[in-house]
Amino acid sequence: MGFKLLSKLLVYLTASIMAIASPLAFSVDSSGEYPTVSEIPVGEVRLYQIADGVWSHIATQSFDGAVYPSNGLIVRDGDELLLIDTAWGAKNTAALLAEIEKQIGLPVTRAVSTHFHDDRVGGVDVLRAAGVATYASPSTRRLAEVEGNEIPTHSLEGLSSSGDAVRFGPVELFYPGAAHSTDNLIVYVPSASVLYGGCAIYELSRTSAGNVADADLAEWPTSIERIQQHYPEAQFVIPGHGLPGGLDLLKHTTNVVKAHTNRSVVE
């Protein structure tokens, strides 16, 4: 069995187990497998329904001669939608809004960016022009300005110390501490036991640490421990890039980060 097929099978099995364990909360999309990078042309966006009122959005972007996937989250909030992270750029984010209108038909009224990198804030200006209120932590807003990236308009308070959590509509926002970046936030959907790890969490097929220019490698494993301790009931975990899975993604990420750190020390 090929690795790609095995990865998709694991996603399907995880979703099936969740649907059985929580039949009222989960209505997993039966329309197909989780979209992969090879299936999404740059400039297009796919939506994948995880649970009743919960979707991931998947886009792709060219970077350094390669094409990478990027995940975000959409959560229903009454007759409105909360968006977590842009679709990595203005063109993708405009396509995301169009796809949401086509498939869901509810307005996106608020959006949260989970850290300051372009795959999370690139497209904020498109959201703002569409009347979406954009939010991020003060740290993310400051770092985005320093980096020359787009800056969300509103500040999220109460997320300055490791372990801080605040309720934001249908989700809980959690600051686990520094990891992929010093400002990275985690998003949890309690009604569906869905954990969105953003770039602080890796997919299972990833074996290298990737972009760690703004990471705190020493603190990252401790931050992941905080996530595990705060959300032990999480059933569906979405990484910032690639295929979702279960809580095993947290341990896998820790292993990859520690291996990278150990290699760096040896070198």
Rank of each mutant, 00 (worst) to 15 (best):
G2E: 15
F3I: 15
F3M: 14
K4L: 05
L6H: 08
S7E: 10
K8A: 14
K8I: 13
L13D: 06
T14Y: 14
T14E: 07
A15G: 09
I17M: 14
M18D: 13
S22L: 09
S22R: 13
P23G: 10
P23M: 09
V28H: 14
D29C: 07
E33D: 10
E33F: 09
Y34H: 09
Y34K: 08
T36L: 09
T36A: 13
E39C: 06
E39Y: 11
I40H: 06
P41A: 12
V45W: 03
L47P: 07
Q49E: 12
A51Q: 08
D52S: 11
V54A: 05
H57E: 01
I58T: 15
Q61Y: 07
S62Q: 07
G65H: 10
Y68V: 11
N71S: 06
L73R: 02
D77F: 06
D77Q: 04
L81Y: 00
L82M: 10
L83Q: 00
I84V: 10
D85L: 00
D85G: 00
A95C: 05
L96D: 00
L96E: 00
K102R: 12
G105F: 02
L106W: 06
P107V: 11
A111K: 00
V112Q: 03
V112K: 03
F116Q: 00
D119Y: 03
V121Y: 01
G122K: 09
G122W: 07
G123T: 05
G123R: 04
D125Q: 10
V126G: 04
A129W: 08
A133D: 14
A133L: 14
Y135L: 01
Y135G: 00
Y135H: 07
P138K: 09
P138F: 07
T140K: 06
A144M: 04
A144I: 06
V146R: 14
E147H: 15
N149C: 06
G158N: 12
S162H: 13
G163P: 03
P170S: 09
L185R: 02
L185K: 02
P190K: 09
S191F: 13
S191V: 09
S193K: 15
S193Q: 14
S193R: 15
L195D: 00
L195C: 01
Y196F: 15
C199I: 00
I201S: 05
I201F: 08
I201M: 07
Y202L: 15
Y202P: 05
L204W: 09
S205K: 10
R206E: 15
R206M: 15
A215P: 05
E219W: 05
S223P: 07
I224K: 03
I224F: 05
Q228S: 14
Q229K: 14
H230Q: 12
E233A: 13
Q235Y: 07
P239T: 04
G240M: 05
H241D: 04
P244A: 06
L247G: 10
L249P: 00
T253H: 02
V256Y: 02
H260G: 14
T261K: 13
T261P: 15
N262Y: 10
N262K: 11
V265F: 09
V265R: 11
V265I: 12
